[in-house]
Amino acid sequence: MTLFDADILTKYTVDSIRTEDEGIDTFLFSLGCYEGEPIEVVSRNKNGCIVAIKDSRYSIDLDLARAISVR
């Protein structure tokens, strides 16, 4: 499942990230968003969702939410 379908306020673990964009992969990595790390969807709306990675909140769009697989 991807973050797009993830339940809100539930702890998940990042499984894989498929953006086909090396820059954004590296960027996510530096935020602490990579395979095996915890992630949580705080809220979502039609355009995207707000996620908690480590101690920070980020707003991401739906394309990025679909590119992040979690378990």
Partner: peptide, 12 residues
């Protein structure tokens, strides 16, 4: 043709 992903930190 490239997807443009958007991510921005929401500071407290």
């Amino acid at each position: 043709n490239k997807k443009s992903y958007f991510i921005i930190e929401l500071p407290e």
